[in-house]
Design a binder for these strands. Structure first.
Length: 482
RNA sequence: UCCGAGGUAGCUCAAUGAUGGAGCAACCGGCUGUUAACCGGUAGGUUGUAGGUUCGAAUCCUACUCGGGGAGCCA
């Protein structure tokens, strides 16, 4: 028994005369020669039935491959009437011979000798064989993976996740799982989801009506993580090259197609390295992931190119070949000022770049991914390394057409005195960061890292315009159904 | 959170102050190679909720609610 086959359920036919192991549609396409003109068995779900008086066709999808398998059946089946009335969504088991198809739309088809109904669907099955809007499909998130689009999205998601691990593992990075429950407010930025076991109705409060968290589960205030970065830095300064890949939570009341309250983030961190190495890593990583997906999900990417975004293949192909652009914040301001564009928000040194500015730079001016570096320290986080000019930090954002900011990173401030000073300037409590400061005290080294929004990468990879359509069960403000 | 546009049959949409329709899905029937199959028929509605204007409201007004777009925050 092969390693793969042992996971497949062996199913016997009704008479128990011979045993056929269920094969997958993926195998049929991969090794057509092994199966053609032979008896096979397939499990799957009915996408549609086209029935005539004495014969009919079933589009069967078994979840392993993008395309359906066409099943041909006729009145020789003992349950012909039942099969002709099968409702979309029903699960069946089909045994028969795989033959070349006379139809133009598929290379082969299954001539059914026996069809067993595993689970009937119902007349009110919400998925039809016509196009549905993504908005409607979000209301049936438990059924949408059965559609072409979401089948493609989540296969790409799985392959992309694998590609991320493959890239880092093959480049000697150590995969670190940082905590999801955290006692530190990582960046002092953004609202966090509180984690507590306190009973709201019987919570002890002190004279100032403040909640007494010493009575809580952890004996202190805890939240869901907004970033694994600080913890990743700790492991970076032990393993030299590390990465995290896990869920992240932000309680911001963001209502946009690019934000979710729960999303996945990839956060590499490299020691004895600066911003240049950081950008190089980001570019190599993105190119690897995209190449890997292009190679391993050709049907899915072609589907997106046909039905979601006509320029997808061209854009992804170009990205893999081209060099990312790289400009400083200063240069970005110059470009915007000289652009002649009428922007709604002013362009001035010391003001942050607005979405419209970022879009102009990456979509119109360069037409490809752009690193923007060295922002004024005022609108960046405390841990970013201060540049020699004393007013900018070694930060970088990667902007890509269509999605916007996909990566945010920086060289970290490794100089203990600078870091302490910065904490003070921002009114952050030094004691809260004692262990983070220790990393600088005990053999600190220059290091850098970035955060990649996994869902934003998927949007870029698939052309899907809304983050809610690249997460299985999206969590957004006022929405945690399923 | 702010700004502007929406919610009509299971789905996608018509109907702009006067008897709420179509396509698809469902259900019944027909059809010997279909492929978003095709042909005929049946059923399906308190027009998001509440209130108001009017002789009369899906249509005009107000509030709420839901989904989405733009902005802010960011990945």
């Amino acid at each position: 028994m092969t390693g793969k086959a042992k996971y497949l359920q062996a199913i016997y036919d009704q008479e128990g005369e011979h045993q056929l192991e269920a094969v997958t549609v993926k195998d049929l396409h991969a090794q057509k020669g092994n199966y053609l003109n032979k008896k096979i068995q397939i499990n799957g779900w009915v996408r549609t039935v086209r029935s005539s008086k004495t014969f009919g066709f079933i589009e069967l999808n078994d979840g392993t491959f993008f395309s359906n398998l066409q099943v041909v059946y006729d009145e020789k089946l003992t349950n012909f009437q039942e099969i002709s009335k099968l409702i979309t969504g029903s699960s069946i088991n089909v045994a028969g011979e795989l033959v070349e198809s006379p139809g133009a739309k598929q290379p082969f088809e299954l001539k059914a000798e026996r069809i067993e109904v595993e689970g009937l669907s119902a007349p009110d099955y919400p998925l039809q064989k016509k196009r549905h809007t993504f908005e409607y499909l979000r209301t049936i998130a438990h059924l949408r993976p059965r559609t072409n689009t979401f089948s493609a999205v989540f296969r790409v998601r799985s392959v992309a996740a694998y590609a991320i691990h493959k890239f880092f593992q093959e480049n000697d990075f150590v995969y670190v799982q940082t905590p999801i429950i955290t006692g530190s407010d990582a960046e002092g930025a953004g609202d966090m989801f509180r984690v507590t076991t306190l009973d709201f109705d019987r919570t002890r409060r002190d004279e100032k009506k403040a909640v007494d968290f010493t009575k809580d589960f952890f004996g202190k205030e805890t939240n869901l993580t907004v970033s694994g970065q600080l913890e990743a830095e700790s492991y970076c300064l032990a393993f030299k090259k590390v990465y995290t890949f896990g869920p992240t939570f932000r309680a911001e009341n963001s209502n946009t197609p690019r934000h979710a309250a729960e999303f996945w983030m990839v956060e590499p961190e490299i020691a004895f390295a600066g911003l240049k190495e950081d950008m190089h890593l980001a570019e190599e990583m993105l190119k690897f992931i995209i190449s890997y997906v292009l190679e391993h999900c050709p049907e899915e990417i072609q589907f997106f190119n046909n039905f979601v975004d006509k320029l997808l293949l061209e854009r992804l192909g170009n990205l893999v070949k081209s060099e990312f652009a790289q400009i400083t914040y200063n240069e970005a301001i110059e470009i915007l000022k000289k652009s002649g564009e009428q922007f709604e928000y002013p362009v001035e040194w010391g003001l942050d770049l607005q979405t419209e500015h970022e879009r102009y730079i990456t979509e119109k001016h360069f037409g490809k991914p752009v690193f923007v570096t060295d922002y004024p320290k005022e609108f960046k986080a405390f841990y970013m390394r201060l540049n020699d000019d004393g007013r900018t930090v070694a930060a970088m954002d990667l902007l890509v057409p269509g999605v916007g900011e996909i990566i945010g990173g920086s060289q970290r401030e490794e100089r203990l005195d600078y870091l302490k000073k910065r904490l003070g300037e921002l009114g952050l409590n030094r004691e809260d960061y004692w262990w983070y400061l220790d990393l600088r005290k005990y053999g600190g080294a220059p290091h850098a890292g970035f955060g990649l929004g996994f869902e934003r990468l998927l949007m870029y990879l698939t052309g899907m315009a809304n983050i809610r359509d690249v997460i299985s069960f999206p969590r957004t403000p006022k929405n945690a159904e399923f």
